[in-house]
């Protein structure tokens, strides 16, 4: 199955109560919503579209990948950085308030029980968001999760404790050298890839800046490792109607793939991130 074949058939719009809202760093927040239906019907890589205002400002919903999910307790979490008016408003909501959530939307990461012994997750900055959820599923399937996680400076790391508690092998990098390898995470991946995984039995999952994912795609190709990337774009609707969320397809003739409906997860060979 390719990511393209997994796009969801069912999604829901629900008023969801905020169970908790925490500021993890000056501009990074984590919100947990009570939503048992969503929690029981979603997979890592999928996203939700949240109406952050009851007025027309801002007008669009805001898309967030599912960061962490508990089927048993019926909640879902998002992790986000405050970057504009939508995320700013979202960060100001408190426990007990309700927001309209549409989802799950889009397709999800593919885990192959048949060949995978390990899964290599590569996160750049807030690209870490979907990987806590993914780590849990990999572990459930007895697949070893390995995390490469790069940020600009050490204070930007989040959820390191959670990954440690799960027993995820973690490789860190910072651009300023304040923690872990000094430089880009892609360089660390290139250095370590031969040691960390049996290439025949692994898949690389990447989420972060397009330039990072483009470089990873090349590394994966050179090492014959399967690579799935999760993309983030502007989107007005999230359901395949506005045609605002395109990414160039990897084809001779110019064409686009739409992130909300055909993604957000693509195999690296499907798309062209070179721009």
């Amino acid at each position: 199955m390719t990511p393209d074949q997994t796009r969801n058939r069912v999604s829901y719009s629900h008023s969801s109560e905020i169970i908790s809202s925490h500021r993890l760093s000056p501009d990074i927040h984590r919100i947990r919503f009570d939503n048992p239906i969503l929690a029981n019907n979603t997979l890592p890589g999928q996203f939700i579209n949240i109406k952050v205002s009851t007025t027309n400002t801002p007008l669009w919903r805001r898309p967030f990948s599912l960061h962490n999910v508990s089927k048993e307790e019926g909640w879902v979490e998002i992790l986000f950085r405050v970057v504009g008016i939508g995320t700013k408003m979202l960060s100001q909501y408190r426990q007990g308030q309700c927001l309209d959530i549409l989802g799950p939307l889009g397709n999800h990461f593919i885990i192959s029980h048949i060949y995978m012994h390990s899964g290599i997750m590569v996160a750049g900055g807030l690209g870490i968001a979907p990987f806590l959820f993914l780590s849990k599923l990999l572990l459930k399937d007895k697949i070893k999760p390995i995390l490469f996680y790069g940020v600009k400076t050490a204070s930007e790391f989040c959820c390191l404790d959670e990954f440690a508690d799960l027993g995820v092998s973690t490789f860190l990098s910072t651009e300023d050298g304040s923690l872990g390898y000094k430089g880009f995470i892609t360089d660390l991946v290139r250095d370590q890839i031969d040691q960390v995984a049996d290439k025949q039995h692994t898949t690389m999952y990447a989420c972060g800046p397009n330039r990072m994912m483009n470089t990873l795609g090349k590394i994966a190709l050179a090492h014959h490792i399967k690579c799935q990337v999760s993309l983030e774009t502007l989107m007005a609707c999230g359901v395949g109607a506005c045609l605002g969320c395109g990414v160039k397809a990897n084809s001779e003739k110019l064409s686009y793939r739409y992130v909300c409906k055909e993604g957000p997860v693509f195999t690296i060979s499907e798309i062209d991130l070179s721009d």
Partner: peptide
């Protein structure tokens, strides 16, 4: 195939 991206932008009470 349509125009190049970005194709959409949110504005005050509109897009």
């Amino acid at each position: 195939v349509g125009n190049p991206f970005p194709r959409i932008v949110e504005t005050s009470s509109g897009m």
